[in-house]
């Protein structure tokens, strides 16, 4: 079961991803202050939070891209920062805001990701074709990734995260800039993956999408987990968006920016 745990609680060996007391400081700004989170195996968890809540920092530390100042990360019971190689094999990662080796073509980039993961050539070749087809990128397989649109870039990176058939997919903003048809296709792929026993963590700030797609949700703000559980538990009868605003706060009553009205005679 997913819950906000005390820092003293041991990591849940049954969870797909188990974070305990994760801290990260950049200079004098504390980005993540003691995040505890269990992602149950077989769940599709949405990580939601306002801008600057620490979502990307948390996910970077949960996938081995950023070393936490304190705390532990377990992937299916394997300590990520103690034995990174074993844990990273089970993880598929889509980071947000990082580059790709974009002077490669789409097919080359997927081949590169597959070979780096130690797959053999026939497997890489077959999965590359399957993923290109699933992401609707077969026609652009020989185009350099640098010339892809933002949505296509997101899709090729997502395909690269899946090529080694990981147990856990950690995806930072996977639907950003992706067209609605592709987004629906990706949601289908993720649901099927979860049905087959995989676990997915997606970050997003689109509450509606999380409510429709995810089985679980964790709300993060100011570097803390405010609430976590199944979508039904967390939203407690309200819409997820209302519950989110209630948890995070900061919603303003109307007013302000009167001068922005074009009908005013100031301009």
């Amino acid at each position: 079961m997913i819950r906000v745990t005390q820092p003293t609680a041991p990591p849940d060996p049954g969870a797909a991803l188990s974070l305990r007391g994760i801290w990260k400081r950049f200079g004098d700004r504390i980005a993540v202050s003691g995040v505890d989170l269990d992602v149950p195996a077989g769940s599709l968890l949405g990580l939601v939070g306002p801008n600057g809540a620490g979502k990307t920092t948390t996910l970077s530390m949960a996938t081995g891209l950023l070393r936490p100042d304190a705390g532990t990360v377990h992937v299916h019971g394997t300590d990520l920062w103690a034995s990174p190689d074993a844990a990273k094999r089970r993880l598929g990662v889509l980071p947000d805001g990082l580059r790709l080796f974009d002077r490669l073509t789409g097919a080359q980039l997927l081949t590169y990701a597959g070979l780096l993961r130690g797959l053999d050539r026939p497997t890489v070749a077959a999965r590359t074709e399957d993923l290109l087809a699933a992401m609707d990128l077969t026609a652009d397989r020989d185009t350099l990734v640098v010339d892809y649109s933002a949505g296509m870039t997101k899709k090729i990176a997502l395909a690269g995260a899946m090529i080694h058939a990981p147990h856990v997919l950690v995806l930072d903003e996977p639907f950003e800039a992706v067209d609605p048809v592709s987004a629906a296709n990706i949601r289908d792929i993720l649901r099927r993956y979860v049905d087959d026993g995989g676990t997915v963590v997606v970050s997003s700030h689109v509450m509606d999408l999380v409510q429709r797609t995810c089985s679980h949700v964790a709300v993060i703000a100011g570097g803390h987990v405010l609430d976590a559980g199944t979508v039904e538990q967390v939203r407690a009868g309200q819409s997820l968006e209302d519950r989110f605003v209630e948890l995070v706060g900061g919603r303003r009553e109307t007013g302000g920016l009167e001068w922005l009205r074009t009908s005013s005679d100031s301009g």
């Binding site: 996938t63 081995g64 891209l65 990174p84 190689d85 990273k88 094999r89 993880l91 990662v93 980071p95 805001g97 990082l98 580059r99 790709l100 080796f101 974009d102 590169y112 990701a113 780096l116 993961r117 690269g160 080694h164």
Partner: peptide, 13 residues
């Protein structure tokens, strides 16, 4: 490599 280097980090190359 710039930040594209993340692929080596994530895959534990």
């Amino acid at each position: 490599d710039s930040t594209a280097f993340w692929l080596h980090v994530a895959s534990g190359t």
